Simulated assay, not measured.
Amino acid sequence: MPTGPKGEKRPADVTSNAVHVMRIATGEIEEGAPADDGKDPAAKALGAKGGAARARSMTPERRAEIAKAAAAKRWGTRSKHENQK
């Protein structure tokens, strides 16, 4: 049985999934609270603040440069900056 992003079990086929959603909607079964991801909520809040502050302090050119390098790393291509080395 496939699992959702938090490890919860979900039906594999469309019909079973539709029945599962119907049972949740009618109250026949409980959907269940999302599982705890094991991260400290305060740390997550501070991390989100820091990321936003970093983005605000950067120039659009620098943000684009970082995004291009990340995409190159993700897709396995070499960025312009790496080719100059």
Results as ranks from 00 to 15, higher is better:
31 E>L: 09
79 S>Q: 04
25 A>V: 02
57 S>C: 00
58 M>T: 03
1 M>E: 09
54 R>K: 13
35 A>M: 06
59 T>N: 06
70 A>D: 12
40 D>V: 02
15 T>C: 08
20 H>P: 01
59 T>F: 02
31 E>W: 06
21 V>L: 14
37 D>R: 05
11 P>M: 00
61 E>M: 06
32 G>E: 03
67 A>E: 12
75 W>N: 13
31 E>I: 08
38 G>L: 08
84 Q>Y: 05
57 S>N: 09
52 A>T: 09
17 N>Y: 15
51 G>E: 12
74 R>F: 02
38 G>R: 07
67 A>F: 01
46 L>N: 11
43 A>Q: 15
27 G>I: 01
45 A>S: 03
75 W>D: 14
83 N>R: 11
58 M>W: 07
57 S>Q: 11
57 S>E: 10
4 G>N: 11
39 K>Y: 13
9 K>N: 04
3 T>C: 05
3 T>F: 14
35 A>I: 06
73 K>D: 11
13 D>P: 01
1 M>G: 12
60 P>T: 01
84 Q>D: 13
2 P>W: 06
2 P>S: 04
69 A>D: 15
52 A>F: 09
39 K>S: 13
25 A>F: 03
20 H>Y: 14
11 P>E: 01
46 L>W: 05
5 P>V: 02
61 E>P: 00
52 A>P: 02
18 A>R: 15
16 S>Y: 04
36 D>Q: 09
71 A>V: 13
28 E>C: 01
79 S>R: 03
73 K>H: 07
38 G>Q: 09
71 A>Y: 14
63 R>M: 09
79 S>H: 09
42 A>W: 06
54 R>A: 13
36 D>T: 06
73 K>Q: 11
28 E>L: 01
84 Q>A: 11
85 K>L: 12
70 A>L: 10
29 I>W: 09
1 M>F: 10
43 A>R: 12
53 A>H: 05
4 G>W: 04
75 W>A: 03
46 L>K: 15
81 H>V: 10
72 A>S: 15
6 K>T: 11
29 I>E: 08
34 P>N: 00
32 G>Y: 01
68 K>N: 12
17 N>D: 13
